[in-house]
Design a binder for these strands. Structure first.
Lengths: 368, 368
DNA sequence: TTGGCTTGAGAAAAGGTTTTCCCAAACATT
DNA sequence: AATGTTTGGGAAAACCTTTTCTCAAGCCAA
């Protein structure tokens, strides 16, 4: 099996240890001391490092037997190429950075999950950097990432109309945004909020609800207006009366309070409430119960975000619009990858569709 | 300012562009094309790369004037050393990996935040890898991290008695565990659950509560027993009656249900409930309200985890035990760093103290 | 002036891999 | 037998930085 003699006197101590281990065992050798390098493989197989490299990368020309012998040797030694050396040469680190200011990870973690999913099979790892709202911290992270030669950066914010406290223009590496778009030339992935709102309101219409209210977050959020407009559009399309959306905060407390506005007045009372997020919906449901109103019997309630930990804990479990954050992350990751690979990509916003998750807070499912 | 002529014919196109830019501007030059290398700096300063390196790293000997000139040139060109090249040489990548299976990030994100905080000032970046419960995925991530020559790994789980689906023994790099300890020789950081429980129960005692119940998670969790024992201890120390903890799930629904057990029987009714997490506490509070019992008037309720998004949304806002996850992450990060630096560290578990966050669900604060 | 010592700075190796040549040997063609 | 052509494989450069070694010049003392 061994080739011609290959200069034992050149072997270092650690190489000798590897060889010793090999002599007694035919399994891949766990190496505790130094990592196995290509030189080790080449020496063991009796070829040059150049040939060894080509054998392992399916490059160059050599007899099938030689190639296989080198491969077997590498496998046997447990050789894994040093990514740093490869990166240095290829000017490509198989590493991307995810920049976020989302402390709780409500948005960034599902996104991260999608990104990581899409990239790990390509051997790409993800640096996660939480920059809070601190420009100094942001610069620190960005510099560290650039020094480490990340192939690209994904920047995500909590809302489309606020940006990270860091400038990513003219960066030498491609940048993709998720949930923010600092300028129109940037490539950004966002969920289709209007479409999601349509999904919700149309669902309520299909269930025969006639007086559908909308309780949502503060006017300072762009998504509030996008969703509110879709809400109005769908009601108009269905010939239903439009009541103005109630704007407040993203909290349970606001949902609670909004119910008072909706049900205390002398106006006709809603038989459905479309809520701007799951926490508001939760507050609404609690307040309705306190008033003796049944959900979904008297009033149907629908949420937004499909934050499972909230949606599944409400009684009854909450029907909600899911923004498909994992899929969004996956798309963003793949697009970044193709950008890194030199494929051009059109600037602008890509809206990804939402998805309705039907539970029990709106009554019988459409086909049930 | 320019030194002697330094061989213009040797300059590449991109270098010439840099020089052109310099001629017209005295600010650091934004470089869109290729990154500035040490060679560029050396050439521009009229010295060898060796000298340039030494000047920038405060090594070697040279006139103060030479050193300063090189530094100024580097600053001017916006030179940043290529981390990959440094890593290759130093066998140190200034990179660590955080392995987790916590999908929602309830635990791992605060931890991440602490780790990142502690390390970013040392120029260390963190790979976040979510391995779910998938051994294949785990191996994939670990291999990718090792190939990229991470300096160390922090592995975190959701619970101390379950481990990640991946073997991190004999890894060539130091490993630190958070919230898990696969074997007694491993270095692990966990929160002091017993201490946290003491904090909670003692708080209730100080407030004069006499019949304190404990509603917690499933028996399969080690922390359930640790906290329950501390609960019993504190009650005994205070001469109060001990009722057996109610074990269930970690959900709101269970908190709700537990209230029925506690208040429907013919036993004397509790005037306080110590809950195993904030969601249970939330369920308990909701159930109490439905029974017309006031919180904290009739019954004091205390939670665990201090998950702000839940604790602050309950009415009244929930007093809860905080596990100091950020601090724990910071400690873990710093310890890993010292391990990487060659400092030895004793194996075993390090318990970090919890902290009580007083809101309104237990009545007047001790000093209020 | 010679020998020894300090000072300032450069050459070269190292780190691990990939890739571009290049070269011998073997084979095929007239 | 002499000339092309393929084939298998190696040498060396490149990526960028750090560090060790070396060396010439300048200085001092004798």
């Amino acid at each position: 099996m061994a080739g011609p003699h290959w200069g034992l006197k050149e072997k270092t101590f650690s190489q000798l240890r590897i060889l010793d281990a090999m002599a007694s065992d035919d399994q891949p050798v766990p190496v505790f001391s130094k990592p196995v390098t290509l030189r080790d493989v080449a020496a063991r197989a009796g070829v040059s490092v150049a040939t060894a490299s080509k054998a392992l990368n399916d490059q160059g020309r050599m007899t099938a037997k030689t190639r296989e012998r080198i491969r077997e040797t590498a496998r046997h030694l447990g050789f894994r190429p040093n990514s740093l050396a490869q990166s240095l040469l290829r000017r490509r680190s198989f590493t991307v950075g995810l920049l976020t200011n989302d402390t709780y990870g409500r948005f960034s973690l599902p996104l991260m999950s999608g990104i990581s999913d899409a990239l790990v099979d390509n051997g790409v790892s993800v640096f996660l950097c939480n920059v809070e709202e601190d420009p100094r911290l942001g610069q620190l992270h960005v510099d560290a990432m650039l020094d480490k030669r990340v192939d690209g950066i994904i920047a995500t914010g909590k809302r489309i109309d606020r940006h990270l406290p860091v400038d990513l223009g003219n960066l030498r590496v491609p940048v993709i945004y998720a949930f923010t778009q600092p300028d129109p030339d940037a490539i950004a992935f966002v969920s289709d909020d209007a479409g999601g709102a349509r999904l919700a309101v149309e669902h309520l219409c299909r269930l025969g609800r006639k007086r559908i209210a909308h309780v949502t977050g503060p006017a300072s959020f762009a998504v509030v207006h996008a969703r509110a407009q879709a809400y109005r559009d769908v009601l108009a399309e269905n010939g239903l009366p439009v009541t103005e959306p109630l704007l407040g905060s993203w909290s349970e407390a606001w949902g609670h309070e909004a119910v008072a506005h909706l049900f205390d007045g002398k106006r006709e009372r809603p038989d459905a409430v479309f809520c701007g997020n799951d926490q508001i919906a939760r507050g609404v449901i609690d307040a309705l119960r306190e008033r003796g109103l049944g959900v979904p019997g008297d009033v149907a309630v629908i949420g937004f975000d499909n934050w499972e930990i909230v949606a599944e804990a409400t009684r009854p479990p909450l029907t909600s619009v899911d923004m498909n954050l994992v899929a969004l992350g996956r798309e963003a990751g793949l697009t970044l990858l193709s950008l890194v690979g030199g494929q051009p990509a059109a600037p602008g916003i890509r809206k990804l569709p939402c998805r309705l998750v039907v539970r029990q807070s709106c009554g019988h499912p459409p086909d049930g």
